[in-house]
Design a protein around this nucleic acid. Structure first.
Length: 492
RNA sequence: GAGCCGGUAGCUCAGCGGUAGAGCAACGGACUUUUAAUCCGUGGGUCGAGGGUUCAAAUCCCUCCCGGCUCACCA
């Protein structure tokens, strides 16, 4: 702590004075409260003139000589308190040792002031903890606030300040928590079992991404941090857990942007005996239920676009969507040469490592996605970018895979899962060839997983949802950092 | 990785070659129902870091650090 900071010095001196008076706030362990701050407001009729005991942080003080008003804040809200000098005796002078940000417990009776504000008339108080560093609480009047914490860097690095000072940030981040919690509740009610699978993996698979690598001393070997949940959840499906899901952190060693954080949260689920259409229905139900429970509505607006999650999602075949928005047809992607030409025709830069499927997905991202504002399932993904999905029976270049889009952004990815171990082996071999050709993000060849599948995997539908992006879309966040409490930052 | 913008008091910002400013917060004083309380007064800064140009740099130039946005990369 920088000793020279005058504001800190003054607060430390106040702490010292409190200690000399035998009122060390940091010696306090508990404080008995009867009500939360919003409960006092809500139950005013019953509580008027009754004694209550409440606690919170001091967020405003107005001392007017022999009378003082202050506001306390807790998780639930704010409440005004009132102190009178002639009732407090010499204890009244202790108010001078309070600062914004300190924690205060008070006991007193509830009344309404002349101007109508519900207030606790304090008879006893205890300073419960001191903020020795200033907390810049803003001035407030109604919904207006002055001098908020604007500095974006500080809001991310010192999120506790952002949460205290910016109600919008607080609501957005708490909404994310509730989305996760309601997703659990929904899936549990649907009969899914929640599990936990390894984060440290010998070989991170299940997605196309570069992993973080770490080292285990005792085993003297490297491990990778997982990039997806898929392959271990499928092992559990093989193990007889017919409806299984996990909500967990995955790690991808890639760039940071407004839509990418190196660690983010995925929900993946697998349901035996279910196919792609069953999963589409599940996604519709899940998004609708979460919206209703977290936000109390199914309509959302972003950048002027309105959507309603109570309505069924549109279902469009990928190649039809591409044709609709670019005029390119399936024949235009028949061979790699034609696919490259077609992509360049619509202004897409193709890399050497791109496969036909990779090019098709680029066309989807660059030319089609922005048009998928309304809830939409795009299905029929190319085989070479979907090595874990079943083939379409009459169109073997494509798979039984869909992505769900909201506001032009992908929020869900699902397949009828490939359960043929012979074909899975072939698919891994194709990925291996891509890797040999220089594609660092090709799926790894996971022999242990193949052996598991050879023991028999049921037909199943699977789903992955990026929780962070889902939270962004439902809360209208522009950056993924606004829905992650502690986003990744460079060393400051 | 590239381009643009930014970093000045605890917070929000102004100043953009001539001795560092405002509001809020803090400190002292007045004030017994205030609520952006009010009124009077006071203190507070390595102007992101380092180098350069200049009689003189927060200000101009260079390098670096941190952040934001856009693009690239990436589910």
């Amino acid at each position: 702590m920088e000793e020279e900071n005058q504001l800190v010095q003054i607060r430390l001196q106040k702490l010292q004075q409190l200690r000399e008076l035998g009122l060390d706030p940091f010696a306090i362990e508990r404080y008995e409260t009867t009500h939360t701050l919003d409960a006092v407001q809500e139950q005013f009729e019953a509580l008027e003139n009754q004694t209550v005991s409440v606690a919170g942080r001091i967020v405003a003080i107005r001392k007017m000589g022999k009378a003082t008003f202050a506001h306390l804040m807790d998780t639930t809200g704010k409440l005004q308190i009132y102190l009178k000098a002639d009732e407090m005796g010499e204890r009244y002078d202790l108010i001078d040792l309070w600062d914004l940000g300190d924690y205060l417990g008070v006991k007193g009776f509830v009344f309404r002031t002349r101007t109508g504000e519900i207030t606790v008339h304090v008879q006893e108080f205890t300073l419960l903890a001191k903020a020795v560093r200033p907390v810049p609480f803003p001035k407030e009047k109604g919904d207006q606030r002055w001098y908020e914490l604007h500095d974006v860097e500080q809001r991310y690095r010192q999120r506790y300040l952002d949460l205290l000072l910016n109600p919008d940030s607080r609501q957005r981040l708490l909404a994310r928590c509730r989305i996760v919690s309601e997703m659990r509740r929904f899936l549990d009610a649907e009969g899914f079992i929640e599990v936990e699978t390894p984060v440290l993996q010998p070989m991170a698979g299940g997605a196309a991404a570069r992993p973080f690598v770490t080292y285990h001393n005792a085993l003297d070997r490297e491990f990778q941090l997982r990039i997806a949940l898929e392959l271990y959840l499928k092992r559990l499906l093989i193990g007889g857990i017919d409806k299984v899901y996990e909500i967990g952190r995955v790690f991808r060693n890639e760039g940071i942007s407004t839509r990418h954080n190196p660690e983010f949260t995925m929900m993946e689920l697998y349901q035996a005996y279910a196919n792609l259409e069953d999963i589409m229905d599940l996604v519709e139900r899940m998004f609708r239920t979460i919206a209703e429970r977290v936000f109390g509505r199914t309509t959302f607006e972003l950048h002027g676009v309105q959507i309603d999650l109570a309505k069924p999602w549109e279902r469009i075949r990928l190649m039809d969507a591409i044709q609709q928005h670019t005029g390119l047809t399936e024949a235009d992607f028949e061979t790699l040469e034609r696919a490259v030409l077609s992509a360049e025709k619509v202004g897409i830069h193709v890399e050497r490592k791109d496969t036909i499927g990779g090019i098709i997905e680029k066309v989807l991202e660059k030319c089609v996605a922005e048009h998928l504002q309304q809830p939409t399932f795009i299905y029929g993904f190319p085989i070479d970018t979907s090595p874990l999905a079943k083939r379409e029976p009459n169109n073997p270049r494509f798979t039984r895979r869909f992505e769900g889009y909201l506001f032009g952004k992908e929020v869900a990815n699902a397949f009828s899962e490939l359960n043929d171990p012979l074909e899975q082996r072939d698919r891994f071999e194709q990925q291996y060839a891509l890797r040999q050709a220089g594609d660092e993000e090709a799926h790894p060849y996971d022999e242990d997983f193949l052996i598991a599948m050879e023991h028999g995997m049921p037909p199943a539908g699977g789903l992955g949802v990026g929780i962070d992006r889902m939270a962004m879309l439902l809360t209208g966040a522009e950056s993924i950092r606004d829905v992650i409490f502690f986003p990744q930052m460079r060393e400051g």
